[in-house]
Nucleic acid binder design. Sequence first.
DNA 1: CCCGAATGAGACATCAGTGTCTCGCAAGGT
DNA 2: ACCTTGCGAGACACTGATGTCTCATTCGGG
Lengths: 183, 183
Amino acid sequence: MTVDREQVLRTAAALLSRKATATMDEVARAAGIGRATLHRHFAGRDALVKALEVLGIREFEAALDAARLDEGSAEEGLRRLIAEIEPAAGLLAFLVTENQLFEGAHVNEGWGRLDARVSAHFRRGQQQGEFRIDLTPAWLTEALYGLIGTGAWAVQDGRVAAKDFQYMIVELLLGGARRNVEQ
Amino acid sequence: MTVDREQVLRTAAALLSRKATATMDEVARAAGIGRATLHRHFAGRDALVKALEVLGIREFEAALDAARLDEGSAEEGLRRLIAEIEPAAGLLAFLVTENQLFEGAHVNEGWGRLDARVSAHFRRGQQQGEFRIDLTPAWLTEALYGLIGTGAWAVQDGRVAAKDFQYMIVELLLGGARRNVEQ
DNA sequence: CCCGAATGAGACATCAGTGTCTCGCAAGGT
DNA sequence: ACCTTGCGAGACACTGATGTCTCATTCGGG
């Protein structure tokens, strides 16, 4: 009888990442619950988005933990990270475009922690000579986010096969489009 | 006295790419005109977004023309394209996230033309042996759009210097993050 | 089996944004 | 100098979404 809050959030994430302007009523129907019940669990639309933000940050941090970035080469760590992040890609794509989250006075500090960890990983890769040093860690971090979002949308719209998601992102981010001699 | 329609559109693009939910009143004030005047030129919000879409497609096509993609190597063409597209990057970033544009019955055919031209360029690069063949032209096209949008946002938010916009996008897209032996 | 807690459906007021209209005014052409 | 045209400001009604409330129902624990 009791609503599964986690399930509601995941359904909302799936809907909102496809249609960011979906109404509370649409979110409720998508989750199979009444609008009143949705309001009982999330005071309003803002609260719902905030809850999604917390969920997204938690999943991203879980992916960072699971990827064990400090083990092995930086490239291997990045591959593991993208693999771990794939299930949450749609949610993250939605959150990144929800710039309302980044306008207010106090932005969720979680983003800073995530940026720092990802950025530090790229920096480590540079220091170890694996990654180029002419692309800043900040830009590589942004590019990773951007490609994850782009990949999630491309898969949703059927322009890229879901099974290729990881490969396309990792290969482009690491190797780029240029064909190298040793390939 | 007469309103400069083009200027209004550019101001609206600049505002909306930062705050996609800006109201008609905010758009009007940003453009320095009254809300009634804005409505005289664009029947409603939908019409405004459609006009921005037409503008964005026009600028993208102009960039494609100016880039002379068929001259020289595919890599040089891509570099020219990104350079030409930079001024319109914010507008394109807004349009890509305005998924309302891609839901209705008839999507503006311009996007298909643009996709086809960009995609054909990547395909040419593959056939000439310049680009990798394990990344599909469709994905490279999507990735280009995604990186342009990400770059535009990163510059707007000050995370990347404006002067580095082209370099960061081109180098990542072409060469990736991995450091190669010859570098 | 019974009772409390939670839900769904619907009614309702409220509010922000929209679209339309009028009126006074300023600019620019003739 | 006149007069047409376009603009700004404001008033207004309308719509869609939101947030709150009530009430009947149903689920599930004790």
